[in-house]
Design a protein around this nucleic acid. Structure first.
Lengths: 147, 147
DNA sequence: TATTGTTATACTCTATAACTATA
DNA sequence: TATAGTTATAGAGTATAACAATA
């Protein structure tokens, strides 16, 4: 029941998204290293910024990573002074994660780096087309439940 | 010299491409496992299909991976009967990699899997918008020298 | 007993460095 | 001496399983 003549792999959106996404991530990773952050650190900070404080297990589920990885990331961010762990007074098993002012500053620097990188990656596009792309990808992200 | 007020990270194309790309790759990886392939195997097969036979070092440079990784990938593909190593008669140090008929069949199955996945990932888009997206991403890929 | 977080351990991917064969 | 490929080794990232504290 598969297509007899599938389209060439490099023309599929699966391939294009995967390839361009990995380029974007590799360059972003390289640049945030200068401020001591790894991609997962940024993911966690961004999550706290978007959805507010959360317990480690909530973060684990939302990010789709193992609870033990949240410990590692939170340890690093705490050492950087970017997040605080606060025991939930109502349930002392829970560690609520709060971004600090410094953490929010770091996140803002990441956003600036991402914007800069976006400009470079899309230098071949007209401004109008760039916004079309943003709109389409936002639709896909929403469909995947990423907001 | 950075923007005083950068756009929110999740709205940047850097973030959207990285996130959606990693989703696409994760799902693709899961599905090609059924036919014994890893993502890098598919990359190598696709490269040979697109640019013709190549030595391992050429592959290493084109794919941007270490020569030792090409050995690993070529070993696996050879064991699957998907590529053949042929000593270059003019320079016996070189191992030219050739896709076999079976390798090309596997590649076609990967293309079918990618097409199926594309349909799922973009189910929220009109056909017209989907083609807009393909055109824009192809432009970006070309600008990155991926063709 | 079940849940939250942590620690110990292992697995996958990939790179670097040392080595072999050929030029 | 330089280059193509290979092997040995190590590091990064992440998961699974065992464990501790709290419910």
């Amino acid at each position: 029941m598969t297509a007899v003549n599938p389209p060439a792999l490099p023309t599929t959106l699966t391939f294009l998204l995967g390839t361009l996404g990995s380029i974007a991530t590799a360059r972003f990773t390289e640049r945030i290293e200068a401020i001591g952050l790894k991609p997962k650190d940024v993911g966690l900070l961004s999550l706290l910024d978007t959805r507010g404080p959360a317990s480690q297990l909530e973060v684990s589920r939302t990010m789709g990573v193992a609870p033990s990885l949240v410990v590692t990331v939170a340890d690093r961010l705490e050492a950087l002074g970017a997040v605080q762990r606060v025991r939930d007074p109502g349930d002392r098993r829970r560690q609520n994660l709060l971004p600090t002012d410094h953490g929010l500053e770091l996140l803002e620097r990441c956003a600036a780096i991402a914007a800069e990188l976006e400009a470079e990656l899309t230098a071949s596009l007209d401004a109008e087309v760039r916004e079309q792309l943003r709109a389409i990808l936002s639709t896909l992200a929403q469909a995947e439940g990423l907001h």
